[in-house]
Design a protein around this nucleic acid. Structure first.
Lengths: 338, 338
DNA sequence: CTTTGCTGTGTAACCGCTTACAAATTGATA
DNA sequence: TATCAATTTGTAAGCGGTTACACAGCAAAG
């Protein structure tokens, strides 16, 4: 049985209120009493029970982070950023993998509410996520990461952190166009995820700006999986209207594209240019190293946690919307078309 | 203000004890009362407060996982396994990144104890970790993952899950020897991490078994970082007694070695064979794809969480020690020496 | 010497549940 | 109809802290 505040009080010869005071560095406790309490704490190896205190204060110093999948380096970097920021403020973070599954997300949220986590960071980015609307409606402290939510202008507490994906899509496409590519296929993740729509917008705008007609048949949606990137690329490369470049919705899909190209004996970038998105470690390591769009995952995660914690500590400023800029990172997977 | 059990009781016209009973599916509550309570819960949108209940029951249905770094794919796969298993039993998991830093680990553990997490999974694998000994001494529910701890035979609750790293080291080295290599350098992570000692043991045994003298100068310890792998490999490859193969302590180091080789204009595997360890996604994607030793990260994580939860639920069987077997995965980074 | 205002500490209510125990209700049995 | 066991429900005491409020002790002021 671990020692309680009563044990400490008894050993120090004071009341539990006094112990609580020194524990919380509150008001006035004489140096002498404080010392006696500290000694008792030391002797008894006392660890305060945050559960009991949370019952009164409603503060557990725990955040929850909802992401689709930690294994995806994009999200593990975000998770690391969140965790580091949280740790910095003496918070912990409960990580939940939703696999882009709204039902799973709902189950998690319900459990987390029961546990009185102080706030939520939702990075699982599904379009029109009812769960998220509910959280906002019920006024839970919340930061949305990498996802917007429409029609909540009147809301004043939910901060949003996003990347400028339209710009990212534009940068990638422009890079390919400037290299001389005209037939550029776009292989995206699911339509339900907002970032894919934005990246597509950027792609379309870049083509338009350079007087290239947008061909709907060159735009493909699917999943953020190597296998999808590979099979879709195989399909595309076998058609008559072969592209000279493929812009993938993220690095994982791009890896799949590289694999497909390799299996068909294509040289990248000689026969086919490939651009990824995210600039995860995968892009750096891929063969050839991927030209990709950099996102600041770690910073976004860090900032999300920081903003959330500041709000929990009473920050009343109106909801922020922070946009992180993207950057083109040129490596070896893009070149002029033959 | 969220509804409490009192609100529900009042609305349903029963006592809070009865509400608690239907909530916990306890003993005898007549169908009729139960229905009334359920309706009240529904109407009030009541969410039970687990903090309050935990104060009595001491169960928060929360596990904590200590790993060095989620960004390392080896650990993110473990984390995913842990989380999936936990979720399966309606538990959540708090993930903490220790960066192999004992002080950080201690701070985390202290905070987690305050939060009354139900149990710990420690995968941060530092040799002779005082924190871990303390946990065991204080009889906290604990599973050790990927790390052993000496001198706790009498302990009956702490399960241990490890990979057979001696075997893994042996397999990797044997593979190189059988290809004809005789000068094989070993670039490991820190000595303080047990797995490195085991992998070295396997390496030594393989050499001995094949009548090759072990040259201490060929064994190097450092960090599990690309940069370390790269700089150490550069150093090695510039010496006169150049190896024809390098066995790296994990895939990350191996990636660094590949980078070094590339920067010196070496062909892998033509001029130099490289073997990694772990078989993370990085090995698959590397250029050339890495020959490596497979570890079952996801399964180990899953099992760790499952064993821990079973113990929390009252399983009294003596402490288990589960050993996962490794497997050589041959890809394109190894070949006969010139 | 009484009053005033600090400072330092103790008392007890409360946070929202669980649960041992008591009490009330029901139906069957004597 | 009275008795008893079984079933259903209520009462109240915690769980381990926080905190409003009361109060004691003491120095300075009147």
């Amino acid at each position: 049985m671990p020692a309680t505040i009563y044990d400490v009080a008894k050993k120090a010869g004071v009341s539990i209120a006094t112990v609580s005071r020194v524990l919380n560095k509150k008001d006035n406790v004489s140096e002498e009493t404080k010392q006696r309490v500290m000694d008792a704490i030391e002797e008894l190896n006392y660890v305060p029970n945050m559960i009991a205190s949370a019952l009164m204060t409603k503060k557990m110093s725990t955040l929850s982070l909802l992401i689709p999948d930690v294994i995806n380096p994009f999200f593990s970097e975000i998770a690391r950023g969140v965790e580091d920021a949280a740790n910095n403020y003496n918070y912990n973070v409960i990580v939940c993998n939703t696999d882009y599954d709204l039902k799973k997300e709902a189950v998690y949220l319900n459990l987390l509410k029961q546990k009185s986590v102080d706030g939520f960071i939702v990075a699982s980015a599904i379009y029109n996520d009812k769960n998220v609307y509910d959280l906002i409606k019920q006024d839970y402290p919340l930061v949305l990461l990498g996802r917007e939510i429409d029609g909540i202008e009147k809301n004043t507490r939910t901060d949003v952190i996003v990347s400028n994906d339209i710009c990212g899509g534009y940068q990638a496409t422009k890079h390919l166009i400037e290299l001389g590519h005209r037939k550029i296929d776009l292989i995206l993740g699911p339509k339900e995820i907002k970032v894919n729509r934005d990246r597509e917008k950027g792609y379309r705008k870049a083509l338009r700006d350079h007087g290239i007609a947008v061909d709907k048949n060159r735009i493909h949606n699917g999943r953020f999986k190597i296998e999808f990137g590979c099979s879709k690329a195989l399909e595309i490369l076998r058609k008559k209207e072969q592209p000279t470049a493929i812009f993938a919705g993220n690095d994982i899909i791009a890896i799949g594209v590289l694999r497909a190209a390799k299996s068909l004996g294509y040289d990248v970038p000689g026969d086919l240019s490939v651009v990824g998105y995210d600039n995860t470690i995968l892009a750096e390591i891929a063969d050839p190293p991927l030209t990709t769009i950099n996102q600041q995952m770690y910073k976004m995660g860090y900032m999300a946690a920081e903003m959330l914690i500041k709000r929990l500590k009473g920050d009343k400023k109106p909801a922020q919307r922070v946009i992180f800029e993207t950057k083109l990172v040129v490596r070896k997977s893009t070149a002029k078309p033959r």
